[in-house]
Each structure stands twice: as structure tokens, then as C-alpha cells.
Computed example of a mutant assay.
Amino acid sequence: MKIHKLLGLIAAALVLPAYAQQESSSAASDAPGTAAAREALKQKEGDTDQTTLLKQTLTAVDKQYSLIKRGKIQATYDLNYTYIGQEKINANFSDGTLTLFNIENDSSHAITNTLSLDYGLRDNLTGSFSLPLVSKYSESPTSSGLSHSLGDIGIGARFQPWEAHRGKPSTTFTANLRLPTGRSPFKVDPNQSLATGSGVATLTGGLNVNHIVDPVALFGSFNVSYSTAAKHLSQRRDGNLVLNRVDPGASIGFGLGFAYALSYGISTSVSIQETISRGTKLHFDNGSVYRTKTQTAGVLSLGLGYRVSPKTTLNFTAGIGLTADSPNFSLGMSMPLSF
């Protein structure tokens, strides 16, 4: 009996180390496979997520929402088409009798190519510069023309005073200066050439707020604009009147909207923007002063973002005018440029 117990103990002593070695070897062989699987499931640097896509969509909807790191440069190409069409009734009464009545159709098509450069002055302060090239075609019963020229150059800055935290709204203050480098509408002959600029310098200050609640981003904006006067003019209007000075009215604007990430590569956005501009004063050489009516421009924008690569997202927008003072229709495309 003692011999059988002794043989059993010897067998156990020989088998257990081998079994333990086999289990250790099996665990060691499984560990790398498990680690590899876990590593494959992790998000890699450069991979996109819905939050990143939503931020890029916000940038495309309105570049005032984005900031870049200090010392970094970012370039963007924008292509925009705008159509404005209107019908005017031309009537003339003489001694209480209608002597002239006709409906005139005016239309204007404008294509704007804009190159924008952003530079990170600080992590929370970004400077911007935009250079637009404008091609415009206009047609009316009395005249038609085609013009290609530089538009109004823009210089701006975006400042984020408070650090952005996940799950909380982000606030950005903006300032933009538009310089009258394009062809002024107060200096060209409307029967011979078309304006490609506003003719006045405009300073705009604003506030933008956005809040990302994955997969939705909510955003809103408010801004105030002031334009300098156009002086020393000599533009003939309505026969004998000569325009000497133009004092544009101040304007306020506000907007709101949302962006929705359908997937890691596709996002959509819907926004509405309204601008209310006070009437402009027109001064003529005979001392007369006229003021235009207050204008209200409202636009509904629909957007689509398509991510073609980890660093490139194409964004397309379609705008529909909601008021008589708005462009009838617009199309736009925005594309980041890599150097």
C-alpha cells in the first residue's frame, strides 16, 4: 500500500509541472492575440469620430466657429454662386392718365472664388485673411454686362476667452474688417461696368456659441456691423443728379442652426441667418438727401459634409432667400487645402 502511494506521488510530481508549463505556454500564446485585438479596436491617430466631423461641419457653415493651434497655418478654398432676380413695374402717369406700363426683369449671376488663410497667433486666438475673385454677369432691359475683378479683401480675428470643455457650450468672439478693394458700385457706370465690391470699409463684431451633443451640434450667432461713408463721389444718377456721398446704415445679424452626423463620413446641417440693415443716406450735389428703406435679408441654408480622407472634408451648401432683400438662390463649396 505504501508502495502504491509512493508511486502516485511520484507520478503527480512529474505530471503537474508539465501541465503547469503547458497552461503557462497557452496563456502566453493567447496574450499577444488578445492584446492585438484590443489594439486593433482602439481609435488610431488621424481616425475620425462624430465630434470631429461635427466641428468640421461647423467650420464649413461659418468659419467663425473654428480655432487652430499656435503657429499652425490652414488654407481653405471656397466657391460660391449667387443668383438675384427681380421684376420691376415701370409706370408713368400724366394728368391722371397711365401713359406707360411695363414689367422689367433684372437678373444677376455672381461667381466668387475665395482663398482664405488662418494662422494661429495663440491657442485661443486665430487671425484670418481672405482674398476673393469675383465674376459677375448682369442683364436688364436697358443694359447687360460681364465683369471680372478683385472683391473686397477681409482681415479678421477669432478669440476664445474660455477653454472649451466636453459637454459644455463653447463661446467665440469675432472681429472682421472688410476693405473696399473691389469695384465700388458708387464709382462705376452701371451701363458699362459692374461692381464687385461694396465701396465702403465695414467693421463687424460678433459672438458665436456652439454646443456639441453627439451626434448633434447646436450653434447660434449674433453680430453688429458698421460701415464708413463713401466720400468725394461724382456719379451721375437719374439724368442731372450727381451722387456726392453715401452713408450706409448700421446692421445687426443673428442666426441659429444645427448639424447632424449621419455617420463617420457624412454630416448634414440646417441653419437660418437674418440681417437687418438701417437705411442708407444718399447725398446729391444739389443739396438733396434721400434715405433708402430698412432692409431685411433672411436666408435658409442646407448643408452636406462628405469626408473623403482623414484630412479632407468637402462641404456643400444651398441657400434659399426668404425675403425680398435676399439673394434668390446660392450654391457653395468649401474645401481645405493641404501644402
Rank of each mutant, 00 (worst) to 15 (best):
Q64V: 08
D95T: 05
V61F: 03
L67V: 10
E87N: 13
A110P: 03
E139L: 05
I155P: 00
N113M: 10
L67A: 09
T52L: 12
G96V: 01
V61P: 01
K72Q: 11
G46P: 02
L133E: 05
I155F: 14
T99A: 04
K44F: 03
E87A: 15
R70F: 02
D62I: 05
I84C: 00
I111G: 00
S116W: 04
R158H: 13
K42H: 09
T51C: 03
Q160Y: 11
N92K: 14
K63D: 14
N90F: 11
T48Q: 10
Q86P: 06
G145I: 05
D118G: 05
T112F: 06
Q86T: 10
S144K: 14
T57K: 00
Y77F: 09
T48C: 02
P141I: 06
I155H: 01
Q160P: 07
N102T: 11
P132C: 08
L146S: 14
L150W: 02
T82W: 01
N124Y: 08
A91L: 13
S128R: 14
L125H: 12
S66H: 10
P132I: 00
L150G: 01
L79V: 14
I84W: 06
N92F: 14
K55F: 08
T126Y: 03
E139H: 10
T76F: 07
A40I: 02
Q43C: 02
I68N: 09
S143H: 10
S135P: 01
E104C: 08
T97H: 09
I155R: 02
R122V: 01
L121Y: 11
A75H: 08
L67E: 09
T142K: 02
N113F: 06
G127E: 01
S149H: 15
N124I: 06
Q86A: 15
A60Q: 04
T52P: 02
K136V: 13
Q64A: 15
T48W: 10
D49W: 08
L131N: 03
A91K: 15
R38C: 07
R158K: 15
S140N: 11
T97C: 01
L131R: 01
E45Y: 09
G46A: 06
N102L: 08
S116D: 06
S135Y: 13
S147D: 09
E139M: 05
S128C: 01
L98V: 06
D118T: 04
V134T: 12
